Computed example of a mutant assay.
Amino acid sequence: MMQPTDVATTIDAAGWSGANGDVWAQEWQRTDRSFADLSVHLNRAVREAMASGPIAVADVGCGAGGTALAAASANPQAQVTGIDISPALIAVAQARAGATPNIRFVAAAVEAAIGAAGPFDLIMSRHGVMFFDDPLDAFTHLRTATRPGGRLVFSCFRAAADNGWARETMAAVGEALPASDGYAPGPFAFADETFVRGLLAGAGWVEVNARPVDFAYRAGAGDDPVADAVGFFGRIGPAARALKVAAPAERAAILERVRALCAARMRDGHVDFPAAAWIWSARNPH
């Protein structure tokens, strides 16, 4: 196992520092919208974990910066550092932050930035911690970058079977659901509550708590919500993966199945799918 100061891993660097990160940067408004209902709960949990006064906060896998910006607004005396491996996402986050004085963003792998920027009073993440090659080593490293008594708050998906946006789009494109137990880096890596609880305890965190949150995953809105949702799913998620490898003759059929799926989910001018997440919290005792 790597030493905690190495955490070599983190995310698929070749993908997220390049093409994957570029797509998420281009789609940041729609991805933020898809998580907006969850972010209400996560941002509340972050506020509850934040001490008042001058503190240091890290947002791991900060993406386009929405969670970091919410934290910076909640405590103007906090210094918030958002870290993401994608330069394109960091550029979006910096543009959104503008002249906000108590926030900065760093384009780097977590292991290259978290120790140098810490120690932190709070480490948080919105769905940014499920991609570590060695999660035990990674969460140990995150804890060593946290001050004694400091907090950890993050969200992650529950099982794919509990997430209608994934379950239904996977079925539409003929993709099998991922296993809900064990660990493999990816969106559903932390679906298993028992695994994550043991992981955090093994990394030295205490007062480990998991809260399930059900939320509406908004895929489409605007003048043509169905077309908007199809466009979104064509860029990110199971349908995007299927389209990438499909023969040209198969693409139209895949898009039609996704369109029918989104049309069936159309309600009140929006295309929403059921989604399920965990919000985890823990404390560094040392």
Rank of each mutant, 00 (worst) to 15 (best):
N163P: 02
N209G: 11
M1Q: 12
D268T: 01
E207Q: 15
I83N: 10
Q94Y: 00
S73N: 07
E250L: 06
A189V: 01
V46P: 07
R197I: 02
T140V: 08
A210G: 10
A260Y: 00
W280E: 09
L243S: 06
P248V: 08
H127W: 09
F120S: 14
D134I: 02
R30M: 05
T169D: 09
M2I: 02
A246F: 10
I254A: 07
Y217Q: 03
F157A: 12
G65P: 06
A275V: 03
T169R: 08
I279H: 03
D121V: 09
I90F: 14
G21Q: 10
D162P: 01
G164P: 02
V213D: 11
A49I: 06
D268K: 00
P4R: 12
A203W: 06
R47S: 15
G182Y: 08
A72R: 07
L200H: 08
D121W: 03
L142A: 08
W28C: 07
T100P: 02
A93G: 14
P238G: 13
L200K: 05
G61S: 11
P212W: 03
A161M: 01
D121P: 05
T144N: 12
M266F: 14
I103A: 15
C156A: 15
V106I: 15
V92I: 15
C62W: 02
G53W: 13
G182N: 07
R30S: 14
N75M: 05
F190T: 01
I254Y: 02
S155H: 06
L261M: 07
D223Q: 13
A184K: 06
T100E: 11
G128V: 04
G98P: 05
P135W: 10
W16E: 04
N284A: 15
A219R: 05
T194R: 13
P119W: 01
A138V: 06
V129H: 03
R126S: 12
A252R: 10
G234R: 04
G21L: 12
A275I: 03
Q94P: 00
M1S: 15
E250N: 04
G231W: 13
M266T: 00
A227M: 06
R211I: 15
V57P: 06
P76L: 14
G82C: 12
G269R: 08
R158Q: 10
D181Y: 00
D37R: 08
I236R: 00
M50H: 09
Y217S: 12
G202A: 14
E175G: 00
R265Y: 01
V80W: 04
A108E: 11
L142M: 15
A277D: 13
C62R: 03
A276N: 07
A117R: 14
E168G: 01
A109P: 09
R126C: 03
R251E: 11
A68C: 02
T100I: 03
I236L: 12
A97C: 08
A45T: 11
G65C: 12
N43L: 05
G202N: 06
R96G: 15
V40W: 12
G220W: 11
A275S: 14
G128L: 04
P187M: 06
F232H: 13
V230D: 10
I103H: 01
G53D: 08
A282L: 10
R147I: 09
V110A: 13
